[in-house]
Design a protein around this nucleic acid. Structure first.
Lengths: 234, 234
DNA sequence: GCGTTATGTTACAAACTGTTACGAAGCTTC
DNA sequence: GAAGCTTCGTAACAGTTTGTAACATAACGC
């Protein structure tokens, strides 16, 4: 586990010492600050993975510090406070706190919540899912996920219905592997299709629009995407 | 106009109905499930931004569901439970919950914590990029909230009715995500629209005034804002 | 061969979507 | 207020997609 750095903002020296000791034993690297200026200075000076911010400096003050920090950085913040009324908690969330813990608290629970927030914050902050430019190919056939287009070996674009496209996608993603109807239905995310003959008819339509030899039948099993080849032996 | 999708897993129908109503009013799109299987099915559809998971199904059960979900997906989870003992809370965190709320809870506080978790998870598809509603862009299309203006890829200003503009805004705020008619209606804050064909006609009009290819149809699902070529972006 | 089973194929119906026409409601202008 | 315009939802019709059912054909076991 990597070493996480916590910034502990707490004006009660005893409390700070105790917490710091406990968290250090838990494997965190602790920086301490006892005031707004100290906290901001610590933030500027180095990397901080999470801030434990005590609000007992006075409600306004703590909340305000949180807001200031939020404005400058996206560091996760857990507010710790003796003020547990709902509106006070909400004020904390309002200014961007990730969690709000009322004193007195169970140290182990604090630890669990620190980890939850760290884990969530650790996920890359959402570079919005750029489409995976996956292109599936087989024997000259091609499915471009980006454009949702199917092209035949000659480069010709083939017009398929959405269902047919989905089926072809399943085959292209599992070339040369015999797929049962159940597996195909599952891949299509359509459990109902497993029951009737829908898959068969669908395969028929796809064959008609592409190449009758592209999808081979495995009697008693299902269908396989196979190379056009003449090998029909073993 | 946030269009976050919450999955509400709750076996108490009354509680579920109340919560759903409240959260819907707050602008969330709610999917409900009352069992493990229902929850997993809803998840497979892949359209959930956050899960509210009631643990009253029995502690083991709820915690176990959480673990299962965690194993498959990284969707943020807030556990809701009548069990507020520390060790029970910790069990929740242990299996990957992002927050743990004891019943009874203040709805507004729940809301604040939902927002905090969503923000941290970076799942802000609706407010897509942190820029608050100032300017939405996609594939050269642009909506300026300040002036309430829509401009086309060439920089040409397009004249849309208020309803059409609202619809485009919904799409721009949720690019590349297939939206159901229900979700669109919810985002337009018009539940009635979900019933008839109003959305379809509206989409048709918007296509006509913008670009027929801008909004793609997902048969059986709804519509997606997409781009043949995601070229321009500035 | 023959019966049985699995698969191919066609026809049909149901569901879904695009499009147009029409009318109600709201707004502007006189 | 009335005429004219715009907006927008409903209704209706057409075209497409897709599953079911039915029948035809092929493969397999004996």
């Amino acid at each position: 586990m990597s070493l996480h750095r916590l910034l502990l903002v707490e004006d009660d020296a005893d409390m700070a010492a105790m917490l710091a000791a406990y968290l250090q034993r838990q494997g965190f690297y602790i920086t301490r600050a006892d005031s707004r200026d100290g906290a901001l200075a610590a933030l500027r000076s180095g990397r901080v993975d999470l801030i434990l911010l005590d609000v007992s400096l006075g409600p306004d003050n703590g909340v305000q510090i949180c807001a200031e920090i939020r404005q400058a950085q996206d560091v996760p913040i857990i507010m710790v406070s003796a003020l547990s009324a709902d509106h006070q908690r909400m004020a904390g969330y309002e200014v961007g706190a990730d969690d709000y813990i009322a004193k007195p608290f169970n140290p182990d629970l604090l630890l669990a919540r620190i980890r939850a927030v760290l884990r969530r914050a650790g996920r890359a902050p959402s570079l919005s899912h750029r489409r995976r430019d996956s292109v599936l190919r087989f024997a000259g056939w091609r499915y471009d996920a980006g454009r949702d287009e199917v092209t035949a070996p000659g480069g010709w674009q083939v017009s398929l219905s959405s269902r047919e496209t989905a089926l072809l996608r399943v085959f292209l993603a599992n070339p040369l592997i015999p797929l049962t109807r159940e597996e195909i239905a599952a891949a299509l995310d359509d459990d109902e299709a497993a029951g009737g003959r829908a898959i068969d008819v669908l395969v028929g339509r796809l064959r008609q629009k592409t190449d009758p030899a592209l999808i081979r039948t495995e009697r008693g099993i299902g269908y396989v995407l196979s190379a056009d080849v003449a090998s029909e032996d073993a």
